[in-house]
Design a protein around this nucleic acid. Structure first.
Lengths: 211, 211
DNA sequence: CTAAAAATATGAGTTATCCTCACATTTGCA
DNA sequence: TGCAAATGTGAGGATAACTCATATTTTTAG
């Protein structure tokens, strides 16, 4: 699908060159901001590198000075979202000590995530396209594992007698199911989406609090 | 990402012209077979229209005689898989009358699906890329709804007192979670994948047989 | 059987887009 | 001040999807 020889291998695509001067750091910010706007408007697939450059007020060459390819831009934005959300999740689950606390915290977390997905077209687009891009898929997987770990530690606290490996699997699965439920919920109508999210919440909590 | 102006609108992309003669029907089959091989080898994204034509022994022009664009080829293959699997699912759930029967049938269904995903690189690739392509996403959604309906009718039989709308939501969600679980399971190692599928099975059955 | 019409086949050429690269400019620093 | 490193530029190379004018085969009508 690329114009050039396909760099299909899904490498992490680190910046070709890290911006070290003030000037270039500002320009990179402008590039990301421009990409963000364009993704929100038309989706990352329809985003054109030329447009990103134009909107950021830089040349195409500058774009490629800091991003090895188009996917790297999307990846950079995705990484920011994950970093932000991980902090939020960690905080929400940190001081859960009993079943009722988990129920409350988890329920709230799901709501926050759902609202975020509904409100942020960029996030929505990126995580929708996740499956097509290997690097993004891996980022999401790593993010999901990290988030699941917060859940795991809560579960270990609540059910010290249970098999830790089983709890890890449960937490990871529940978390991934949550992300899938979000994607589903935003791709159907608002009303059905709400119902699906509510159903997921019940299902997940039933599993997390089982036994 | 396309070479040409992006036809991003996700229309259903029906054949530009349905093959009406024996000759052309055979050629279309060859095109699909060639595409199937190439997708299995390198993924649908890396599949080149020129290669498909060459491998099928037809010209590029002929390819576009019957498929309006590249996505239409993938879509045609996807449609076949869904038609096949729907028949299988319908049969497996048709004569479930009690909880134990549902447990058995559902468990077997999940195993079959999982094996299918593991064994069929084409299916794997297509459903992985599903999120990126609107037409495919819609096909999968429709397929999922249809399959969920089989589950719904079983649930209505088993729990006649329950709210039908709630059962529908549950069935749809459980089914979609299943597809997500499969995608997850095949993207991690075999061992972890097995554990995740088993965990999903438990979680889904707990939900389906609740109350 | 024949001729017109419809369906099918072809592939060189058009177009759109990603990305490179040789060269220009600015900044940090001894 | 002068040199090296970092940064900036945009015309052009490369690729792959898709078109279209034209040729061939099959079907159909008289």
């Amino acid at each position: 699908m690329e114009g050039r020889a396909g760099s299909q291998d899904g490498q992490i695509a680190s910046p070709r060159r890290a911006p070290s001067q003030q000037r270039s750091r500002e320009r990179v910010e402008r590039m990301l901001a421009a990409a963000s706007v364009l993704i929100a408007e038309q989706g990352s697939d329809a985003m054109r590198m030329g447009e990103v450059a134009e909107r950021a007020g830089v040349s195409i060459g500058s774009l490629y000075q800091f991003f090895p390819d188009k996917r790297a831009i999307v990846w950079a934005l995705a990484e920011r979202y994950t970093a932000e959300s991980q902090a939020c999740i960690s905080a929400a689950l940190a001081d859960v000590t009993d079943a009722e606390g988990l129920r409350r915290a988890f329920s709230e977390l799901v709501d926050i995530y759902y609202r975020l997905f509904l409100a942020e077209p960029v996030m929505r687009d990126i995580w929708s396209g996740t499956q097509a891009d290997k690097a993004l898929r891996e980022l999401e997987l790593a993010d999901s594992r990290a988030n699941a770990e917060f859940l795991t530690s809560v579960l270990k606290r609540l059910r010290p007698a249970a098999d830790p490996a089983a709890l890890e699997t449960t937490a990871f699965l529940v978390w991934q199911m949550g992300e899938a439920a979000m994607r589903l919920a935003i791709s159907v109508g608002r009303e059905e989406g709400d119902r699906l999210v509510a159903a997921y919440k019940r299902m997940a909590l039933r599993e997390l609090l089982a036994e």
